[in-house]
Design a binder for these strands. Structure first.
Length: 273
DNA sequence: AGAGGGATCTTCT
DNA sequence: GAAGATCCCTCTC
C-alpha cells in the first residue's frame, strides 16, 4: 500500500465513526453532537449556539499586524467528527500584508484561485498545501489580501487525539510525541487539529467544526516578541521586517529568537519605569 | 547541536 | 518546468 494512501485511510478512520459520514466537509450539516461525547457539548444550549463566548466578526476585523498580535493568548477550538473537542492556545503568529509585502502569496495584490480566501472577509480561513505534503492555516484580516498565519499552539485539551493525528504522519510511530512537539509549527498544528484543504474559505464565526474563544490569560505588550518571519527566503526589505509574533518564554513556540529577546530586554531597561 | 537532504504535488510562469 | 510561509530523519562534529 502506498504511504500516502495508508495515511489517508488512517486519518479517515480516526476522524469518522459509525454515526458520521467520513467526509469532513459534511460536518456543518450535522452540527448536533451525540450528547455524551464531550464534556463541552451543548447540553444546556441550543445547537446553533455552540459557544456563547466565541470570538465574533468584529474581533477579526482589525489590521493585519494588530490581529496577529491580538491572536496571541486566544484559543482555537476544533470539533472532530466524533465529537471530541481540541483546544489550543495561540502562542505564535505571522502577519502577511498583501500588496507590497513581497513574502505574501497576495503580493502585488494578485488574486489567484489558491489565495482567494486571503481576499475574503476577516475571519475567513486560508488553507494551502505546502511541499506537496503539508498544510498551513491563515486567518484573513482587515486589508486587501492580508492574512495571519497561525504558527504554534499550546495544546490545552484533546492531547490524545492530537497525538494520534500527528503520529499517523510519521515513519517511526514508536516514540511518543512530547506535548511541546504536537503543535509547534504551522503544519504540525494543522496535522494535530485535522485541518486540511477542506477548511479553505470557511468562516471562523460560522463554522460548527472550528472556531475561536477568548483566552483567559492575554499577554501584555512586554510579553510579545516581534521578530522576522520564518522560511520566506530572500524577499528584499521584507525579509527582515518584524512581522512574526510570539509569547516570550513560552515553550510551545516553534522558533525562538534569543538575540532579539536580549535586544528587547535591553530596550526595556532603558525606557522602563 | 547543527547541517543537509528527501518527501511529494499543487500552483503559477 | 520550477518553486514552495515545512517537517523529519540521518550524518557529522
Amino acid at each position: 500500500m502506498p504511504r500516502k494512501r495508508k495515511l489517508l485511510a488512517q486519518l479517515s478512520a480516526l476522524q469518522s465513526n459509525s454515526s458520521f459520514p467520513p467526509c469532513d466537509a459534511l460536518e456543518n450539516l450535522s452540527a448536533t453532537p451525540d450528547g455524551n461525547s464531550s464534556a463541552k457539548s451543548s447540553k444546556y444550549f441550543p445547537a446553533e449556539r455552540k459557544n456563547p463566548a466565541q470570538l465574533e466578526a468584529d474581533f477579526f476585523n482589525q489590521p493585519c499586524v494588530s490581529l496577529a498580535k491580538s491572536f496571541l493568548g486566544q484559543i482555537l477550538v476544533r470539533r472532530l467528527p466524533d465529537g471530541r473537542e481540541l483546544w489550543g492556545r495561540i502562542v505564535e503568529t505571522e502577519a502577511y500584508l498583501g500588496g507590497e509585502d513581497e513574502a505574501s502569496h497576495s503580493k502585488g495584490g494578485k488574486q489567484t484561485q489558491r489565495n482567494a480566501a486571503m481576499f475574503m472577509k476577516p475571519g475567513t480561513l486560508y488553507v494551502y498545501q505546502i511541499y506537496g505534503i503539508y498544510f498551513c492555516v491563515n486567518v484573513s484580516s482587515q486589508g486587501e489580501g492580508a492574512a495571519v498565519l497561525l504558527r504554534s499552539l499550546e495544546p490545552l485539551q484533546g492531547l490524545d487525539a492530537m497525538r494520534e493525528l500527528r503520529s499517523t504522519a510519521r515513519k517511526a510511530p514508536s516514540k511518543l510525541l512530547k506535548d511541546w512537539q504536537l503543535c509547534n509549527g504551522p503544519s504540525k498544528l494543522c496535522q494535530a487539529f485535522g485541518i486540511d484543504k477542506a477548511f479553505d474559505q470557511r468562516d471562523l464565526t460560522q463554522d460548527a467544526a472550528i472556531w475561536m474563544v477568548p483566552g483567559g490569560d492575554l499577554p501584555g505588550e512586554q510579553d510579545v516578541v516581534a521578530t522576522t518571519r520564518i522560511g520566506i527566503g530572500s524577499r528584499g526589505e521584507w525579509t527582515e521586517k518584524p512581522l512574526r509574533f510570539y509569547l516570550r518564554g513560552n515553550r510551545f513556540v516553534s522558533v525562538v529568537d534569543k538575540k532579539r529577546e536580549r535586544e528587547m530586554a535591553a530596550m526595556g531597561q532603558v525606557s522602563g519605569s
